[in-house]
Design a binder for these strands. Structure first.
Length: 563
RNA sequence: UGUCCGAUGGUGUAAUGGCAGCACAAAUGGUUUUGGUCCAUUUAGUCUAGGUUCGAGUCCUGGUCGGACAACCA
């Protein structure tokens, strides 16, 4: 029976288009039985949820076909890159649950790439150009008009070789010369109009220091790096699609191993900015507390917020892989984290906005320690004892003096259960001079205690509570979307995406938690009854407990109340 | 007024010429010591016009709409 089910499941398994290409290649033995992918970030920023998709595709595909996956840093532009980013990228990839087979840097290949460039010069396929940036831009033409050829295009091989070697030797100033491929200035693909291969940058590189003053462009580095590592399938995002003819041109002219570039549509999320440049701006302008601000879509931000690697991998699996543009609803990511957290987190009672509840017929100094199950989804999670006393705090919003019909919680004369404890009935309320309720007085029914035979009595509502004496004040940080616009990057001309920032994206307040949270360590995750999933912040200490709200629970009551 | 790519429910993704399926969202009902969770049910889709074929979401042609490309960024 069970076997049948699993067989059916594997038969029904849908292959995405990348898997299909790979299976075709495996069937034709294009690369033997080899599948080798790579994840190639530029170390110029922190990884975000969009990279997570790419990581899951590259590492996941390799795993699926018993292949290998490299981590390669595309570090060909020294002015933007830094080891801070290298370190964070390695940490984030590992945290997501992946490990690389080879760890490489494009800068490992600077010497190889230099030799490739000389080879191209010797074949008459590359030349040193002295046009200024502006001139070159003008001569490139437009998408509808052919470009014109550079006056330096037909220099002799010897002259080109000499000039290129002197470029490397540091004889020339930044921007004075570049090495270009000699392809076709009238090519309909702008990238094929004599693209730049090398530019002069007199700047220290985070790994090669001052060894080089000429650096290869992305196009001249990426495909060749793939080739050197014998990558079989070079999976990247759609914006590199127009680069593929150039990628293949270099491989062909250089007569080296030919990986296959395959493009997929990058991840877009509504209410989310994913551009590295813009995220960097948010950090630099201190709109957020840093790259790992829990509101950021970065991997480290999500981690601090309380997301689990499992939930992110599950998300990547659910959104799939295709070539059409997409905008995923952020609700799907929230579904994934709720699904995971619901299974693994222990429940804890925490009152966010307290109002005092007094049980008039409960003994004055009595303290009962009530048995509370940690996780109804997982009986093995065990239980804890929660102190119960005459005076409690409950959520202010759990009591309504003039409730609508479908209000299940506490109201004058009404009955509710206090979770793990007794059924109580509301007798009266005390108000201050401004009319605000300061105390709710109730009576309890001793025989309805949880676990007792008579505890089966049905009531509509169940409330969480903490003892007014035995509780721990903690700091809770409630997050909302960083941007209030569905497409935050879409702004009118002359306006800026930061105008779409949500001023209400972070609220900090004090809450009263049951004593069991006292020993929580940074990274610990809980479900605070009805208030959502929370994660102990990295700055939390035993003197000052801080909790980040990962996400709320699905709140159906809000919808009912609207009607 | 170029080249390339894409178009399947509200969203995302399958169906490789043969019953348009899955997930999220939405709606309804059931269970429930929190209105959460869990379970069941329902709503809803092949951009368009032709063609090939016994049969087209799939192949061909035209159109429409959307995206990418003119950095010494990746």
């Amino acid at each position: 029976m069970i076997e049948d089910k699993t067989t059916q499941a594997s038969e029904k398994e849908h292959l995405n288009f990348i898997h299909q290409i790979i299976e075709d290649d495996l069937n034709t033995q294009k690369n033997g039985n080899r599948v080798h992918t790579r994840f190639p970030p530029e170390p110029n920023g922190y990884l975000h949820i969009g990279h997570a998709k790419s990581i899951c595709i590259n590492f996941g595909t390799a795993q699926k076909y018993n292949g290998k996956c490299n981590l390669r840093f595309d570090d060909t532009n020294p002015v933007k890159e830094d080891t801070e980013y290298v370190d964070s990228i390695m940490e984030d990839v590992r945290w997501l649950g992946f490990d690389w087979d080879g760890l490489y840097y494009a800068s490992d290949y600077f010497e190889n790439l230099y030799k490739f460039a000389e080879k191209l010069i010797q074949k008459g396929k590359a030349y040193v150009c002295e046009l200024s940036q502006e001139e070159m831009s003008l001569q490139r033409g437009t998408v509808t008009k052919a470009g014109v050829e550079s006056p330096y295009r037909n220099r002799s091989i010897e002259e080109n070789l000499d000039l290129f070697r002197r470029m490397r030797a540091g004889e020339f100033a930044d921007g004075s010369r570049v090495l270009r491929a000699k392809i076709d200035m009238a090519h309909p693909n702008m990238l094929m109009r004599d693209p730049i291969l090398y530019r002069i940058i007199h700047a220290g590189h985070h790994r090669t220091g001052n060894k080089w003053c000429i650096y290869p462009m992305y196009d001249f580095a990426h495909g060749q790096s793939d080739s050197i590592e014998k990558i079989t399938h070079s999976i990247c995002t759609l914006e590199f699609e127009v680069h593929r003819p150039l990628y293949e041109w270099f491989i062909k002219e250089l007569e080296i191993f030919a990986p296959q570039q395959i493009e997929f549509a990058r991840l877009n999320l509504n209410y989310t900015v994913m551009s590295k440049r813009k995220l960097l701006r948010l950090v630099q302008e201190k709109r957020v507390f840093g790259w790992d601000d829990p509101r950021m879509p970065t991997i480290c931000g999500l981690r601090r917020r309380g997301y689990t690697p499992e939930s992110i991998r599950r998300f990547a699996e659910m959104i799939g892989v295709a070539r059409r543009d997409n905008v995923i609803d952020i609700g799907l990511l929230e579904f994934c984290i709720r699904e995971d957290l619901n299974k693994i987190t222990n429940r804890v009672m925490t009152v966010l906005n307290p109002v005092k509840l007094v049980i008039d017929n409960y003994p004055e100094n009595e303290v009962e320690y009530l048995e509370a199950g940690n996780n109804p989804e997982n009986p093995e999670a065990g239980s804890r004892k929660v102190p119960f006393t005459k005076e409690l705090y409950i959520e202010r919003e759990d009591f309504m003096e003039n409730p609508p019909n479908k209000f299940f919680r506490l109201k004058p004369g009404g009955e509710v259960r206090l979770k793990y404890a007794y059924i109580i009935q509301c007798e009266s309320v005390v108000k201050d001079e401004s009319g605000e309720i300061t105390e709710i007085h109730c009576t309890y029914q001793p025989d309805t205690k949880s676990g007792l035979p008579n505890s089966n009595k049905k009531v509509k509502g169940t409330l969480h509570w903490v003892s007014a004496k035995h509780n721990i004040p903690v700091e809770v940080r409630l997050y909302d979307r960083l941007f209030s616009a569905e497409n935050p990057e879409e702004v009118e001309d002359g306006h800026d995406f930061t105008e779409n920032l949500n001023p209400e994206s972070l609220k900090i307040s004090t809450a009263f938690a049951e004593p069991s949270v006292k020993d929580s360590k940074p990274g610990d995750k809980f479900q605070f009854e009805r208030m959502g999933y929370f994660c102990t912040d990295k700055d939390s200490t035993s003197e000052r407990l801080i909790f980040n709200r990962t996400c709320t629970l699905k709140d159906t009551w809000a919808k009912i109340a609207e009607k």
